[in-house]
């Protein structure tokens, strides 16, 4: 088992400042671990992997891993990822974003990335809050939850990331949590190996900015909450009372070639036609 930690160390940039900038008990490090294990399991070459991150706590993940890493502007990770993938389809491009990043400021880019099915894997680290700016509500903050900008409780309803991305046409959509790491590893690896736009929502607790203000006593308690309230979709569907329960697993797996593949085919067709006519 030691190989798990050793493996991660092989992918970390040791000339970067450690430990990670994240707060104690923040799940982001676990997602990073999942990402590294998935890349390793698929046997991808470090040179061919690109991490494109947005702004926020999740955005800081990129700097720590020894891939090609790009830390972009807030909400725009998918646009840069789209440019990279179209420019060089051979690369495995992974966009790492937070909930505010991907679904608030970057919501437009996300639905369009899903619609055009660009061959990028989106890893959305959903902690229900803007962590880096100090705990403001985001578009996934549950109704009624407290934050510095919803001090009387969030009035607006939250996005369901899975449903939204599914409706936008993504090739694959799944949800995991940092408590259910093995399953998360499998979901990330699956997303990485499939064509088209594949999104994995990873529920990752933020005790500092979300948990403390919403009745959790510690980060550990938030992990317990994940353990108790999340369950595989098959079991979730059999439940009579689903209140407070969150389904996990793969929700959509459609076989849609990535935009880069369809574009290349179109260009080839165009050139062949021209060649034939000449």
């Amino acid at each position: 088992m030691a190989e798990i930690t050793q493996l991660i160390h092989k992918y970390l940039r040791h000339n970067k400042k450690f430990p990670l900038v994240f707060c104690p008990g923040c799940g982001h490090g676990i997602v990073l671990g999942s990402l590294v294990r998935s890349v390793h399991a698929l046997g991808l070459n470090k040179d061919d992997v690109v991490i494109v991150a947005g702004i926020g706590c999740s955005g800081r993940i990129a700097a720590y891993v020894d891939f090609n890493t790009v830390h972009t502007t807030h909400g725009r990770a998918l646009t840069v990822a789209t440019g990279i993938k179209m420019a060089n389809p051979k690369l495995t491009v992974i966009a790492v974003m937070g909930d505010g990043d991907a679904f608030s400021i970057g919501g437009n880019h996300l639905i369009h990335a899903a619609r055009r099915n660009i061959g990028v894997t989106a890893l959305v680290l959903n902690n229900f809050i803007y962590g880096m700016t100090g705990g403001q509500c985001s578009s996934t903050t549950p109704e009624g939850a407290y934050s510095h900008t919803s001090p009387m409780g969030q009035l607006e309803s939250a996005f369901d990331i899975v449903e939204l991305t599914k409706a936008a046409g993504a090739a694959g959509v799944s949800r995991g949590t940092v408590y259910h790491v093995k399953e998360l590893d499998a979901l990330v690896a699956d997303a990485l190996s499939r064509p088209g736009f594949n999104l994995v929502e990873a529920l990752t607790p933020c005790f500092t900015q979300y948990g403390r203000g919403n009745g959790f006593k510690s980060a550990v308690e938030m992990f317990r909450w994940l353990k108790d309230s999340c369950l595989p979709i098959e079991r979730f569907e059999k439940l009579e009372d689903r209140t407070g329960k969150i389904p996990l697993g793969s929700f959509v797996r459609r076989d849609i070639p990535g935009l880069e593949t369809r574009y290349a085919a179109m260009c080839e067709g165009v050139r062949r036609k021209k060649g034939g006519a000449a």
Binding site: M1, I4, H9, P19
Partner: peptide
């Protein structure tokens, strides 16, 4: 413990 430590700080050598 290994995959759940957010800071890659635990190692178990069987």
């Amino acid at each position: 413990c290994e995959p759940h430590c957010p800071d890659f700080a635990v190692m178990v050598i069987p």
